[in-house]
Simulated scan of single mutants.
Amino acid sequence: MGSQLADGAGGNVDWAVVHWVNGLAEHLPHGVDSGLAYLGEYGIPLASVLLLLGAWLTARRESSAPAGVAGVLWAGLAAGLALLMNIPVRAMVQRPRPFVDHPGQIDLLLKHQSNGSFASDHATFTMAVAIGLFLVNRRLGLVGIGLAAIEGFLRIFAGVHYPSDILGGYALATAVVLLLAPIAMAVLTPFVQALTRTALAPLVRAPARAAGRGRGPAVHPVGPGDGPGSDPEQPEQDLAA
């Protein structure tokens, strides 16, 4: 199956895109090309993890915190599950990477193993986080999708993946997140709600701030015994004066 992906019209398009995108490195200042490659290797996946953390902190402050936190939890778990499912896929396809298929024709921008190329772990992980977050918070989900798109481009740019490897990772991630979401949420939502009754409740709901803190002196309502003349040490003023 790996040879089928590499040969034929589809393989020619794959190689043409890799050759063009990877060739952009020749026009960049020295060091920028390798910096972008390492951004794809480590920086974007780390940004996806930080986005996941930000989504959790946001969900804790919402009125529907248990459901939101459960959704964020599923986004993280789905990303890990998609990576596990990619292991047998890569073993079955056994597709050589571009720098293995085309020795001497690729500017390999970082050291990489010559293991299977399809599907991309990096694309799978970043897109799984993005789709999972989109189900909870559309704004953060769109940011995640943008990060996944940049990640895919940078993996091609580095010379370690074909475009179809990236698209395969996106498809695998999307399928895992969406198909298993109903079952996962049916289990995770009650579990997260149960945590609110334990010492781990702050993981689900942000602790409420004390009323009046940082807002100036407290204002006390006037009671029946308050008002002019209520203080025995103060003589009552003549209101008619």
Rank of each mutant, 00 (worst) to 15 (best):
S3N: 09
L5E: 03
D7S: 13
G8P: 07
G8Q: 12
A9S: 06
G11L: 11
G11I: 04
N12M: 10
V13Y: 11
W15T: 11
A16Y: 06
V17P: 01
V18D: 02
V18Q: 01
H19M: 02
W20E: 10
V21Y: 10
N22F: 07
N22T: 01
N22Y: 07
N22G: 02
G23M: 08
G23F: 08
H30L: 11
H30Y: 12
H30C: 01
G31W: 10
V32G: 03
D33A: 15
G35I: 06
L39T: 15
L39P: 00
G40D: 04
E41W: 03
Y42F: 14
I44T: 02
V49C: 10
L53Q: 05
G54D: 05
T58P: 00
T58Q: 13
A59Y: 03
R61M: 09
S63E: 15
S63F: 02
A65K: 05
G68A: 10
V69C: 12
A70E: 07
L73Q: 04
L73F: 09
W74N: 11
A75I: 06
G76C: 12
A78Y: 03
A78I: 08
G80D: 01
L81D: 03
L81T: 14
A82T: 13
L84P: 00
M85F: 15
M85W: 13
M85N: 00
N86E: 12
I87E: 13
P88T: 06
V89P: 01
R90V: 12
V93Y: 01
R95N: 09
R95Q: 12
P96A: 13
D101Y: 05
H102M: 12
G104I: 14
G104D: 13
Q105A: 15
D107V: 14
L108K: 00
L109T: 13
L110G: 00
K111Y: 12
Q113A: 14
N115H: 15
G116H: 09
S117I: 08
F118M: 07
A119E: 02
S120G: 07
H122T: 05
A123E: 01
F125L: 11
A128L: 02
I131Y: 08
L133N: 05
L133S: 07
N137K: 08
N137I: 01
R138K: 15
R138G: 13
L140P: 01
G141V: 05
G144D: 06
L147P: 07
A148W: 15
A148Y: 14
I150T: 11
I156C: 01
A158C: 02
H161R: 01
P163S: 03
D165N: 04
D165P: 05
D165Y: 13
L167A: 11
G169M: 05
Y170F: 15
Y170T: 01
A175T: 15
V176A: 00
V177N: 07
L178R: 06
L180E: 02
V192D: 06
A194R: 14
T196N: 11
R197N: 13
P202F: 14
R205C: 11
A206N: 04
P207N: 08
A208D: 15
A210F: 08
R213Y: 11
R213W: 14
G214K: 01
R215G: 00
R215P: 00
P217Q: 07
A218D: 08
H220A: 09
P221A: 12
V222K: 05
V222Y: 13
P224R: 12
G225Q: 09
D226V: 00
D231M: 03
D231T: 02
P232F: 10
E233M: 05
A241Y: 10
